[in-house]
Design a protein around this nucleic acid. Structure first.
Length: 158
DNA sequence: GCCAACGTTGGC
DNA sequence: GCCAACGTTGGC
């Protein structure tokens, strides 16, 4: 089993939205970056675990965890002219070049693990999220990074 | 295939 | 709102 981090802007789709969703599950639509797509398509497997990360907000943080409940399949929003994720090139081909997985909420952290906290954790040196200019919206996470972040998130006190 | 211009991401 | 980093586009 592998571990991942997936970014979302809470204004668009938050961890609370995931908890409120049917079966606490959502399709991870709208990824429009080849590297992120390739990770979803080639590497993400059922039951893989996901750190659910809020970006571009007041307090960027990992909010909780999720698991992959459906492996990669075509993201058809790319073909929908009404969608914010419409992709003219896919539409021209008549087939989406983008893929998505479905994820289900597993655990809401007792407290979000903030970007600031993660930066302060020596053991997370080198984590992809913390590297300058790291913009990838789907990132691999090591077992060690996963364990540390989940531990901090579960703690009721810092 | 190179690379400059442009667009996007995302923390601050 | 700024700006650095990065990805994509398109002319050559």
């Amino acid at each position: 089993m592998r571990y991942w981090l997936m970014k979302t802007e809470p204004d668009t789709f938050s961890f609370d939205d995931l908890l409120k969703a049917k079966d606490k599950t959502t399709s991870w639509e709208g990824v429009r970056n080849y590297q992120a797509r390739n990770l979803m398509r080639d590497e993400m497997k059922l039951k893989d675990r996901v750190l659910f990360y809020h970006s571009s907000c007041d307090e960027p943080a990992v909010m909780g965890t999720a698991e992959v409940v459906r492996e990669a399949h075509p993201d058809l929003t790319a073909l929908d002219p009404e969608s914010a994720y419409f992709d003219a090139k896919s539409a021209k081909d008549g087939a989406s070049r983008w893929q998505m997985v479905a994820v289900k909420a597993v655990e809401r952290f007792a407290q979000p693990v903030t970007l600031k906290q993660m930066r302060a954790m020596k053991a997370l040196d080198g984590m992809m999220l913390l590297r300058p200019g790291s913009r990838l919206s789907v990132q691999p996470v090591s077992a060690k990074e996963w364990a540390l972040i989940v531990k901090v998130g579960r703690a009721t006190k810092v």
